[in-house]
């Protein structure tokens, strides 16, 4: 198979019904695919959910995942958004140690730079909320890591394709 192994972001629209999510997750385990992150929420139509998942694999594996997902009766639409122009965000909540004034200042500085927010405070911790694309979140975590992370939660990515796929950005249209 082709060896181009990378992360793909796949968006699935599915009936908001018990069993639909289980079916999708079981498909991954039954066929030996790995899910890196998974996010579920309903869309503008409350009877339809959007699942955004990130999976690693070569092109052949990802193509299989997409096709197998499409076979499911509850699934409306599956799109591989990896190479699309898209809005792609993740929410991070992280609690860091700030026992010293220097650490407090450092966190406040980073929060400022990344446009994050301190949402909870205790004597020796700050809890920070950050929304951004995966790279921003990863970068923030790397910088904050030496201070000592107590606890963290990430939502996994949610994504939507941009309304205009290119032309207005001054790029050549492919179609």
């Amino acid at each position: 198979m082709d060896g181009h192994y990378r992360k793909h972001i796949i968006s699935v629209l599915v009936e908001n019904q018990p069993g639909a999510l289980a079916r999708i997750i079981e498909l991954f385990s039954a066929r030996g695919y790995n899910i890196e992150s998974l996010n579920v929420g309903h869309t503008e139509d409350p009877t339809i959910s959007r699942i955004t998942m990130v999976a690693k694999g070569d092109e052949h594996t990802i193509e299989q995942i997409v096709k197998q997902l499409r076979r499911l009766i509850d699934v409306f639409k599956v799109r591989d958004l990896t190479d699309k122009k898209k809005l792609d965000r993740e929410l991070l909540i992280v609690r860091v140690n700030v026992e010293t004034p220097e650490k407090k200042d450092e966190v406040k500085r980073l929060v400022d730079i990344f446009g994050a927010q301190i949402v909870d405070v205790s004597h020796d911790t700050y809890t920070v909320e950050l929304t951004g694309d995966e790279e921003q979140v990863d970068a923030f975590l790397e910088l904050i890591k030496p201070l000592g992370i107590r606890e963290m939660a990430r939502t996994g990515r949610v994504a939507m394709v941009r309304a205009l796929q290119g032309e207005t950005f001054g790029e050549e249209s492919k179609h």
Binding site: H60, E63, Q64, K67, Q68, R70, R71
Partner: peptide, 8 residues
């Protein structure tokens, strides 16, 4: 009839 079989 099953597109998932094609190229599998």
């Amino acid at each position: 009839i099953d597109s998932a079989e094609i190229g599998k």
